[in-house]
Design a protein around this nucleic acid. Structure first.
Length: 291
DNA sequence: CACTTGACCTGTCCGC
DNA sequence: TGCGGACAGGTCAAGT
């Protein structure tokens, strides 16, 4: 579930909270979540301080003073939650999560020298965290193949159209979800941007007109920027670096709104189907397959 | 190579 | 009420 806006929201929180904190201890409940050897951990993580927190695609990168980096993928249900030494009072919106930590979803717990903590929680165990030399991060297979950042200045509508060409025979939703075409889009923002551009998700990429691609490019940027502004989308599980939920879902036009009115045609209800193997939300009036 | 499908997990919800 | 099965959706491996 964490897509670009959610991971970016977490990154901004961690960038505000982590730099200069020194790692004291690390505990992990399963090697699947954090496979590094104890030798690497004690040499390159314990005693290191955080220098900065970056993001590429849906991956978080916590850089350390040892020139190692914690590379983190939250996949669907991962959370990175920082808990400082000041405690909230009862009734604080984050208190129930914060006070439960570590809980049964906690996979990795970092404790800093000031006794603040960083929790990596992930109940489905799809996510992972690993320690790598910073210089080796770009050499990971994923980073060698991943496409451009959709909010970067280099990513123009021309670049978007060009990169979609090699996926001409598949449907546009599968192409948007393909991280080698562009980085960071997942199921939520694929559906939201396609509704915005009035394109049916099952439309073949090769059948889309240049004007439609240009509109999709604009809608994609609009929903990603709006979602970052709203702190991401919390459907069930997602929270930011302080345990807070995101509010984009209350702005969503079609995602998880099956059976509710389309914002453009209040007499028509949003439908749910399956495209590219994913639950897909569309308006049957505005989104018609181009021929 | 382009493209699709299933596996990885576990919690929740729906129908019987 | 209990229980089985479908579903959630990011990425990779294996399939066509």
């Amino acid at each position: 579930m964490p897509e670009l806006p959610e991971v970016e929201t977490v990154r901004r929180g961690l960038q505000r909270l982590l730099p200069n904190r020194v790692v004291k201890t690390v505990e992990s409940d399963t090697p699947k979540s954090f496979p590094n050897s104890e030798a690497d951990v004690s040499q390159f993580l314990i005693g290191a301080h955080v220098t900065q927190v970056r993001r590429r695609a849906k991956v978080l990168l916590i850089d350390l003073s040892t020139e190692y980096t914690l590379v983190i993928h939250l996949k669907m249900t991962g959370q990175m939650v920082f808990v400082g030494t000041e405690r909230f009072g009862a009734g604080h919106p984050n208190e129930s999560l914060i006070s439960s930590l570590p809980n049964k979803s906690t996979r990795v717990m970092l404790t800093f020298t000031d006794d603040s903590k960083l929790f990596f929680n992930d109940f489905r165990k799809f996510g992972w965290m690993r320690l790598l030399p910073t210089i080796q991060v770009p050499e990971l297979d994923f980073f060698k193949k991943v496409g451009p950042e959709p909010l970067s200045v280099e990513f123009t509508d021309k670049v978007f159209a060009e990169r979609l060409k090699r996926r001409a025979r598949t449907n546009i939703k599968a192409a948007l979800l393909d991280q080698t075409v562009l980085a960071g889009v997942g199921n939520i923002y694929a559906d939201e941007s396609l509704w915005g551009a009035k394109i049916h998700p099952a439309t073949k990429v090769g059948d889309l007109k240049p004007a439609q691609l240009k509109q999709l490019y604009k809608e994609l940027q609009y929903v990603l920027l709006l979602a970052i502004e709203k702190g991401g989308s919390t459907d069930k599980n997602y929270v930011d670096a302080e345990g807070k939920k995101g509010s984009y879902m209350s702005f969503a036009r079609v995602f998880r709104r099956e059976g509710l009115p389309c914002p453009r045609h209040t007499e028509v209800l949003v439908e749910k189907s399956r495209v590219a193997g994913r639950g897909t939300h569309t308006c049957p009036v505005c989104q018609v397959i181009a021929i």
